[in-house]
Simulated assay, not measured.
Amino acid sequence: MTGRYCSLTQAPAPVLTPGLAAERLSALVGGRPKWVNGTVLHYCFFDGDDDASVIHVPGSASTRRVSWVGDERQREAVRAAFREWHGLGIGISFTEVTDRSEAELRIGFQLGDGSWSAVGKDALRIGINDRTMNFGWDLTAPGERATALHQIGHALGMLHEHQSPCAGIHWDDEAVHAELAGPPNFWSRETTEFNILRKLEPSEANGTLWDPQSIMEYPFPSGLILEPEEFRGGLVPPGTLSPLDKEYVLRWYPPPDAPRPPVLVPFRSAPLRLGPGEQADFTVEPAGTREYTVAAFGDCDAVVVLFEERDGEPRYLAGDDDGGAPRNARVRARLVKGRRYFVRVRLYSGWGPGETAVMCW
């Protein structure tokens, strides 16, 4: 990734109830981008003649189309990166599909558009005919497998490591702006500020320690970092998944438990007893075909997601996120007798004296 940097765009800020307590707000900021554990993320590659951006030709009034389609070597580089992340034993799995309407992650290869990805669940806000991830240069070039690993880290909800408030980096701001304004990035000051100089909130950071070896860390040439002194001559991460990367992603997405989750019995409240960031999973095996409601209860911020088992794989059916709102998450869907469903509840935070619970009816 040396010299060419991931260029995230700023997503719309979530709408939260004013006056939230600091602890509750912190839990929401850190947890909202993360998928519920056990999710199967489906990805597809754009492959049609119409899959392209229309861009203006510099110095003229004309436009031209720039394709999003990558060749098989580029696709295989991305597949290999997905396999490497999954090989850590995380509770998230990845499946390639050809129908973009089934894909949460839709991947393009528009050269010159930079390499970037939506962060975690922000991908769900993007229309099915648009990219959630792009690779703007050759992933088969020496050292560039790190680019694919880095963007998948974003898709899992991770942010840039050098922006961690734990890093203690003192930048030469104008040197950074000058470096990124030139080739090969040609970034605006706003893009540089958002992707490099802006400090994250502690709850957004990938961990409580700065990890200069992280796959989410940029390499930097000499003269941009003033402190820590050891990096004045430059910072060159190895471009691999570091031990702290593995620790962080396994904390959010631990390996799935072997036993089948307990059955959520209709009209019977199931206590959650979760701490912030923890998750509870349940099985639903409907006795009849009808509309069912699944909801969380209690003073809590939570996300509730309902999956249907198809061909041995949980497929997303419905979900709701009540984070920061004065209500509880609730989903309603038609469940079919003889089929198996899974309910996953991830708690951001709880603040009341009462018990938090989930119920199906």
Rank of each mutant, 00 (worst) to 15 (best):
P184Y: 04
A11H: 04
G143V: 01
A11Q: 08
Q163D: 01
L139G: 07
D113L: 14
P58G: 00
A61E: 12
I126H: 03
A118T: 07
E84L: 08
A318I: 06
S164D: 02
S60P: 04
R346C: 06
P12R: 08
Q151K: 07
L25V: 00
E227C: 03
R260C: 05
N328I: 13
R64E: 15
I126M: 05
K337C: 14
G319E: 15
A123F: 02
G48P: 00
P271S: 04
S222L: 03
V305T: 15
P12I: 01
W187Q: 10
R260F: 10
E204F: 00
Q151G: 10
L306E: 11
R65Y: 07
F307P: 03
P261K: 04
L25K: 04
L149I: 11
P261S: 04
A148F: 05
D301R: 06
D130K: 12
G157S: 09
R332G: 15
F194P: 00
A61G: 07
E72L: 10
L149G: 06
P243D: 13
F109I: 08
I107H: 00
R32C: 04
A11M: 05
F342R: 12
H42P: 01
L317G: 07
E217I: 00
N37C: 15
G350N: 06
D99S: 11
P33L: 02
S117A: 15
R131Q: 13
F45E: 02
Q163G: 03
E84I: 03
S93T: 15
V303D: 09
P142E: 11
G298F: 08
P183F: 02
P314V: 06
G112A: 10
